[in-house]
Amino acid sequence: MPVTKTPDGLSEEITPGHPLIHLLQIKTRIFLADFRGFIRKLKHHPSALIGALLIILFLVVAFFAPAVAPHDPFVGELSERLIAPSWLEGGVSQYILGTDQQGRDLLSRIIYGARISLWVGFISVTISVLIGTLLGAAAGYFRGKLDLFLSRTADLLLAFPFLIFAVAVMSFLGPGLINLILALTFKGWVEFFRLVRGEMLSEKTKEYVEAAKANGQSNLRIILSEVLPNIIHTIIVLGTLRMGFFIIMEASLSFLGLGIQPPDPAWGSMVNEGRQFMLNAWWLSTFPGAAILVLVLSINLFGEGLRDILDPRLKIE
């Protein structure tokens, strides 16, 4: 049997199987098929490219933290406390960004902190996307009492400011990584719910859904393998942008002492710890703060670039 080559170089089409597997296949396939075009478009979108490169840098550094970090982030010499960054007066080349009040290397702590920020951001976005998409798709597709109940719940959650709500949940659950993720997703799914529900409402009226029904497809199948692939790009864009937001929320909670607890090096708690030394050791708060800024900025740049690239109405060349 001759293998037919498609224009984008894919040699074989997907086999639709179980709806969930089908969706997974579609996702990977769409991803692979569009990857080259995506990279090409990314090259023409400078801010998205910068964002992407910085994110990759953060990911690599976080992944290889033990190899990259020059010192142990948890152990410090008290005799070497509050050393200035290496380029300043009193700085030592051994500690590039200086040391904190316990003599721990600041750079190493920031590097390990990237792990926490990225983890929290990624996990809470993933869970929020899953919950929000599932409920939003069901609400938008089936309407009725389910939709009414879920929409009102979403409205209720939206009435609270995010941080206040997260603070309340955290003080109820107590600090810790898992509780932090719980607190973020507790309200985080709402955005995705509203997005997917709205998209589903508009997609549902399109004729291809009617045709799928006329073809004998079940509701689950129509939702997962007909409609979702049509709206997945909006979910990806919102997911990316929300990840930046969740990272800030994590940092804020850790800053308030409700999130990650010392000695774990979360950027937010590092900023908080450094606050008391602001006048004579400004670098303690400044560099973790800058790390938050750069990471969130690059995620947002990338997210907005994604929106331009994935939105078929905004063709960029």
């Binding site: 089409e13 997907i14 579609i26 291809y208 009617e210 006329a214 073809n215 004998g216 007909e226 692939p229």
Partner: peptide, 30 residues
């Protein structure tokens, strides 16, 4: 559901919107 598409098939008015835009034609036939 078993009858739809198998014993009784339907052809719609507007082919542009009836085909799912994100799938290849061949897959949709399959």
């Amino acid at each position: 559901r078993d009858i739809r598409g198998k014993d009784i098939a339907m052809i719609f008015q507007d082919p542009m919107t009836t085909l799912n835009p994100v799938f290849r034609i061949g897959e949709q036939i399959r």
